[in-house]
């Protein structure tokens, strides 16, 4: 991943006192980097994030601070966790439309159970188990009955959203000590900077996901399925098991994201997180993961979330624009990225 992170600095080096011959090779290296289906899109996203952040810093007073950056993480920790789960699914060439509804469902379960006096130590594991089982069912449906992931997860989305209303039609607020504590706790980082426990959880999830995808056979099989499911089968890889497992992971991540979201809102409401699945998909795609699978990084998806977050922040700082402009910008950005991915990777062939 180091390769990925220092990538945006490369253009800077070209301006250095390089001789004519190395300059050619550096230029070619940049071109190769940008047209690589593996590194190209994520590099562009990283550059974009830096550029937006600098533009924001130049335009608005107080934008260019560490806390503004950290708040991106604070406000979007649940989305980061969602995007991690979504990355697994999209890397195999699938899609998970149920995650937004599952976020709302786990919020509802948490709120209602805590209201009746259950301990958070029981409620949170229970939610994670339930949402993982839901993911397992979706995965099995996709594997055994060869249902399109789009349809299977759409069904799961309606199921989860419907269950929210079965639990309650109206908002349930959370007054549990632990949840309130987790919601208000600020962990100081020194120098007036602070984060929330949710950020730490999200960072841990990201770290585990990076390790799993990069350094385990399961993770490499996820990439293999995206590269060619049939080939993977012929190579004797455990394709079926892996395909089911990515939906379990996505279900688990949705459940966890739901819990983090309740830390943020301290309530459960059946109508929350409508369309969040699309934010997660947008973050993953902007983060450089190809929708057809096989190429992409978890850290790219984190970058994707940060790009969405920084656009939101800029619109907040602007003050005069309605927050719906965020959606318009994200839509335009998504379009540009999809086209960019096509153009860049087509150039290579």
């Amino acid at each position: 991943m180091t390769k990925l992170l220092d990538a945006p600095e490369r253009p800077v080096r070209t301006g250095g006192p390089a001789g004519p011959t190395p300059r050619v090779s550096v230029a070619r290296r940049i071109r190769n980097l940008l047209t690589s289906p593996k590194y190209g899109p994520v590099t562009v996203t990283a550059v974009l994030f830096v550029v937006i952040f600098i533009v924001g810093g130049v335009r608005y007073r107080g934008f260019f601070s560490g806390q503004v950056f950290l708040n991106l993480l604070v406000d979007n920790s649940y989305l980061i966790v969602l995007a991690v789960g979504m990355t697994f699914v999209i890397l195999t060439g699938g899609i998970d439309l149920s995650v937004g509804a599952v976020v709302a469902l786990s919020g509802m379960i948490a709120a209602s159970l805590l209201q009746t006096g259950w301990s958070p130590a029981v409620v949170i594991p229970l939610i994670l188990v339930l949402t993982s089982v839901l993911g397992l069912l979706v995965g099995l449906m996709i594997h055994i009955f060869k249902v399109q992931p789009f349809i299977a997860t759409l069904a799961a989305m309606f199921l989860a959203r419907g269950l929210c209303y079965v639990i309650s039609q109206s908002s349930i607020s959370i007054t549990d000590e632990t949840f309130v504590q987790l919601a208000v706790t600020r962990i100081p980082l020194g120098g007036n900077l602070s984060i929330t426990p949710s950020v730490i959880i999200a960072v841990v999830v990201v770290a585990i996901a990076v390790w799993v995808l990069h350094a385990t056979r399961f993770g490499r099989t996820v990439y293999a399925i995206g590269g060619g499911e049939q080939s993977g089968l012929l190579m004797g890889l455990p394709v079926a098991r892996t395909k089911v497992l990515v939906y379990v992971i996505s279900g688990f991540c949705s459940g966890l994201a739901g819990v983090l979201f309740t830390f943020y809102t301290l309530s459960g409401y059946p109508l929350t997180a409508i369309g969040t699945e699309l934010d997660a998909i947008a973050a993953v795609v902007i983060g450089g993961t190809l929708l057809t699978g096989g190429y992409g990084f978890v850290l790219g998806s984190v970058l994707g979330v940060l790009v969405l977050g920084v656009i939101q922040t800029i619109i907040t700082f602007e003050g005069t624009l309605s927050s719906w402009w965020t959606k318009i910008f994200i839509g335009a950005l998504l379009l540009v990225f999809i086209i960019l991915q096509k153009v860049l990777t087509a150039r290579r062939r």
Binding site: P37, K38, R217, R220, T221, Y223, A224, G226, G227, G228, Q230, S231, G232, L234, M235, G236, L237, G294, Y295
Partner: peptide, 19 residues
Amino acid sequence: NLLPNLSVAENIMLGREPR
């Protein structure tokens, strides 16, 4: 029947990677 999105080494060793 190999995977163009993975490295040459992985294509040779996939499923039998040393750990």
